[in-house]
């Protein structure tokens, strides 16, 4: 086995995969949120739809997005495999369960991950798939030389249904918990731990874990309740 394989099949190597893909997804979430906040603009979907058009047609973005899909899958499958190993490392469970000292979310990252993944499938089926292959209405905006797909319209329809809004909010709660542990944990796995900057990582992680899911959750809530 050469060093590369050995490294990425070792416990620490596999955790590093989780850490690096996790950090990539953390960066992606920021960009994704900034883009999606266009939905809140009161411009009949102009900024959002043109943004969506840009994202689906730009060559560079397209390349990066393939990386993104790969990382999501890698993060998910590696995570599940690790959880399986972890679960089977203690075949005989404790009788007493009153002694759990670690945070709930840190012990249930896999469950949270599965929830998020399920949410993601629904989310992508709803919008991404329709954007890529499905039949969406076309709109033409002034100043643009060609019509674009009206994803904004599709989103508005979806977020006017209460159950979809509810699922989105639940999905974001799961994401919050996942990030609450995952953000700082990614740095610990990378080996970044020092009394001087670790408190900062933890604080930034908490702020991030609150703000990002909150931002995502605001969109359906805003559309449902305000628009």
């Amino acid at each position: 086995m050469n060093w590369f394989l050995r490294f990425f099949t070792s416990s620490i190597g596999r955790k590093l995969i989780m850490s690096l893909t996790g950090l990539f997804l953390i960066v992606f979430l920021v960009i994704h949120l900034i883009g999606n906040l266009q939905l809140l603009n009161d411009d009949n979907g102009l900024s959002f739809n043109t943004y969506a058009y840009f994202m689906t047609t730009n060559g560079l973005i397209k390349t990066v997005s393939y990386g993104l899909y790969l990382f999501i899958l890698l993060h998910a499958f590696q995570g599940i495999l690790i959880a399986k190993v972890n679960k089977s490392s203690r075949k005989n469970r404790y009788v007493s369960n009153q002694g759990q000292v670690a945070n709930w979310e840190s012990r249930n990252m896999a469950i949270l991950g599965i929830l998020i993944f399920a949410f993601l499938l629904m989310h992508m089926g709803d919008f991404w798939l329709k954007m890529k292959m499905g039949q969406l209405d076309m709109v033409k905006y002034d100043g643009y030389d060609h019509p674009v797909k009206d994803l904004y319209g599709r989103v508005s329809i979806a977020f006017n249904q209460l159950w979809i809004v509810a699922i989105y909010v639940i999905g974001q709660i799961a994401l919050y918990l996942h990030l609450k542990h995952g953000f700082a944990s990614a740095f610990q796995t990378l080996g970044w731990n020092h009394p001087k900057y670790t408190p900062l990582i933890k604080s930034v992680g908490l702020v991030y874990a609150i703000l990002i899911p909150l931002g995502f959750a605001l969109i359906p809530l805003y559309i449902y309740f305000v628009k």
Partner: peptide, 8 residues
């Protein structure tokens, strides 16, 4: 098992 940084 693997470390998942729970801190327990």
């Amino acid at each position: 098992g693997f470390c998942s940084n729970t801190g327990a």
